[in-house]
Amino acid sequence: MDARQMREIPIADFLNVMGIHPSKQRGNVLWYSSPYRTERTPSFKVDTAKNVWFDFGIGKGGDIFDLAGEFIGSGDFLLRAAFIAKSGTCPLPIMKQAQRNEEKEAVFEDIWVRPLQDAKLLGYLKERGIDTDIAIPNCEEVRYRVHGKRYYAIGFRNDAGGMELRNRFFKGCIPPKDISLKRNGSDGCAIFEGFIDYLSAMQMGIIASDWLVLNSVSNVEKAVKVLQDYERIECYLDNDEAGRRTFQRLRNSFRDKVIDRSSLYADHKDLNDYLLFQRQV
């Protein structure tokens, strides 16, 4: 699929596969609550005949690439194309002699945090198999501004005071980046790559020890420094090359104290994928 064909993807289908549905329809016009910002009254319009959109709240509109740019806050064409492809509506386009511009690091402004209560965020976690009684005590709701636009996400605190962020469309971090460690006085510690897997373990009731979320496999050296006193280190890491390398790094430092628990979900990419599979059985 080339860029021209990608541009012809119905915007309504693009939104639908991301779980975004219209509030009302009048002829060829669909009305939505803006999918990338919060609002009370739907002011986001999609003309299905012309395959264009317009957001009256910000006074902007355009084609599917313009819409992808609003979701990710970027004017980079390849990043926008990748976002469209990631939605599942199509494969990546074949680009000739394309050059990617350097992306500026996101600057988070006007940040405020409150208990997790937004229905869309809780709904997203519900889709990942996480019930509200697990999500609310462990996560927070974070609202912030990037490039002048207001966004919101599920927040998970790390030990340096940063916040891991996640919503249906975005995965990132309000710096600084760090591990998240919870000590409960146990001689064992369960290790997870990300907080969704940690929440999955809580949902499944398989944690009976201290726990540590890496928040990125690049934080494994930080984890090594705080795991010295544990007698048992149980790894619930992803079933991919990065997960295997991380397990081996821990095994090199702590030898037989490190236990690989990935056999529990051997046919799945990670613990959350296994949780969703179990809920379908």
Rank of each mutant, 00 (worst) to 15 (best):
G172D: 13
E164K: 15
R143Y: 05
I191E: 04
S180E: 02
N167Q: 08
F71M: 03
A106V: 03
G75N: 11
Y144V: 11
K149Q: 15
A160C: 07
N167M: 11
E127L: 14
N184H: 12
L122E: 06
G88V: 03
Y151I: 01
I134R: 06
E127W: 11
I130A: 02
D159K: 06
D76G: 01
S186H: 09
M163T: 15
I154V: 15
A81V: 01
E141M: 14
F195R: 00
G69P: 07
G172V: 05
I84W: 03
K126E: 13
V113P: 00
I72E: 12
G161W: 05
G162N: 07
E193S: 08
K104P: 07
G172H: 08
D118G: 03
N138Y: 11
D63P: 07
R166I: 10
F169R: 08
P91H: 08
K86T: 03
N184S: 14
S180I: 01
G185C: 04
I154W: 05
G172Q: 09
D133S: 09
S87Y: 01
P175S: 11
K171P: 03
R80C: 07
I111Y: 06
A106T: 04
F83N: 07
L79C: 01
W112G: 00
A98F: 13
W112K: 11
G148L: 10
F77E: 12
I179H: 01
A119N: 09
A153N: 15
D159L: 09
A160Y: 06
L78D: 11
D76W: 00
Y151T: 04
V142G: 11
L121F: 04
N184A: 12
P93F: 07
R80S: 02
I134L: 01
V142K: 13
